[in-house]
Amino acid sequence: MSKTVLDVSHLTMRYENQTNATLEDVSFRIEPGERVALLGANGVGKSTLFRILLGLLPFNSGTIKRFGVETVGRGGGKVLRSFRCQVGFIPQNHGLSPTLSILSNVMHGRLGQGNVWRRCFQSLASKEERDEAIQCIRQFGLESKALSRCGQLSGGESQRVTLARAFFGRPKLFLADEPAASLDPSIANEMMASLSNQAIETKATLLFATHNLEHAMKFSDRILAIGNRRIRMDAATEGLQMEELQTLYD
C-alpha cells in the first residue's frame, strides 16, 4: 500500500488580520485513490484549507504530511514545490492568463517542471507536449478555440480550461475548489463527471469542495464537512442520507 496522500493533524490557522481562528484543531487523512467531497457553508474556510494544503499559506499549529513528508514551518520550499507539481489544482477563481491562448494556459499545468519557456508558450512547446495538451483540450470540446485568448471565454469555458490545465499535469492528486460553481446544472454535472472519471482512470486522489449535495453523494467515496472551524463530519458516502448532509447547513 502506498503512502497516505494527505495526513493533517490538529491544524489551526488564523489569518493575521482576524481575531478568531478560521480553522481549529482540524484533523483528517486522505488515502490514495479516494474521492473526497469537502462540504461547508460559504466562508467556512474551504479555500483556506486548500491554500494550506498546497503550502500557499502558513498555519499556526499542527502538522501536515504530504505523501508522507512533513515540511517544517514555512521553509522547505523545494519539497513544497515538488508536491505542487504532483497536484492538479483547480482554484476557485480560475487564475488563467487572459492575454494568452487556451493552449498556452493548458500547458501551464506543467509550468513547475522542465524548461519554463517551453512550458509557458504553446508556440515554443515540443510536438509531443503540444499534442498532449491539445488532447486535454479536446476532452472538453474546446479544440476549435484552442488559440483564442482566455480573456474572451465564458465562465463555463474558463472552468473547462482550468480542468484541462489540471489534467495536463497528470497529477497524482486533484485539489478542486468548487469546480462546478457558477455553471448551469448540466455543465456542472458534466464537469464533475469528467473530474471524477479522470481521477478513477489515472488512479489519482481527488478532494473537491462543493455546495452541491447531489454531486457530493454521486462523485465521492467519503464526505468531509467543515463547520464552526472544525471538522463536523467525516464519513463514507455510502450509507449517508441526503437529510444528514442538509443538517450541515442549519
Binding site: C85, F89, T99, R110, A166
Partner: peptide, 22 residues
C-alpha cells in the same frame, strides 16, 4: 497567481506565464 503557484510554478514561471502577459 494562486492557481499557478498551486501548480508548482517557479517565481520566474509565474512572471512569464501570468504577470508579464497580463
Amino acid at each position: 497567481l494562486e492557481g499557478l503557484r498551486g501548480l508548482g510554478a517557479t517565481p520566474f514561471g509565474q512572471f512569464l506565464a501570468l504577470i508579464l502577459p497580463q
